[in-house]
């Protein structure tokens, strides 16, 4: 019984890119954390597949996969604690509403700076076919 290495490798690459899209496109911080989990799982699949292919006597791939799973569990705990602390202090968990470190402005202006951003969002979504066309031609 055999299995082409291309199957798990391609599946891992596609899963990683799906997670990459989620990290870049999602607004809710918890959805971003879910996408990070997808990327970590893609790497785990690669590690296991190459470990089985190489028949490593130390099984470094599987050991590293177990370590990555444990670190991912710790990461999701810390990440959720940070998200909950941000939600408790700011009342939102949207990653693009947290602009305190974006420009040197007073913290009072951060509340006001959100409103023009929200009004810009429909314009950006209307401009999306144009920007897609621009990327296609570029």
């Amino acid at each position: 019984m055999h299995l082409h290495l291309a199957y798990p490798a391609v599946l891992a690459a596609l899963l990683f890119c799906v997670g990459l899209y989620g990290v870049l496109a999602r607004r809710n911080a918890i959805l971003v954390l879910m996408s990070v989990e997808l990327m970590l799982n893609a790497v785990n699949l690669n590690l296991v597949a190459f470990d089985v292919w190489l028949r490593d006597s130390l099984h470094a791939g599987q050991a590293l996969t177990l370590f990555v799973i444990a670190i991912a569990a710790a990461e999701i705990g810390i990440g959720l604690a940070i998200v909950l602390a941000v939600y408790r202090n700011r009342g939102t968990s949207a990653v693009d509403a947290l602009r305190d470190t974006a420009e040197p402005s007073a913290p009072d202006e951060s509340q006001e700076a959100q409103e023009p951003d929200d009004s810009q969002e429909p314009q950006q979504s209307q401009q999306s076919p144009q920007s897609q066309k621009a990327e296609a031609t570029a």
Binding site: Y21, L24, R26, Q124, E135
Partner: peptide, 12 residues
Amino acid sequence: DSGNRPVALAVA
């Protein structure tokens, strides 16, 4: 979804 969805789609 945030506003940079087409850019994210292109990158992915």
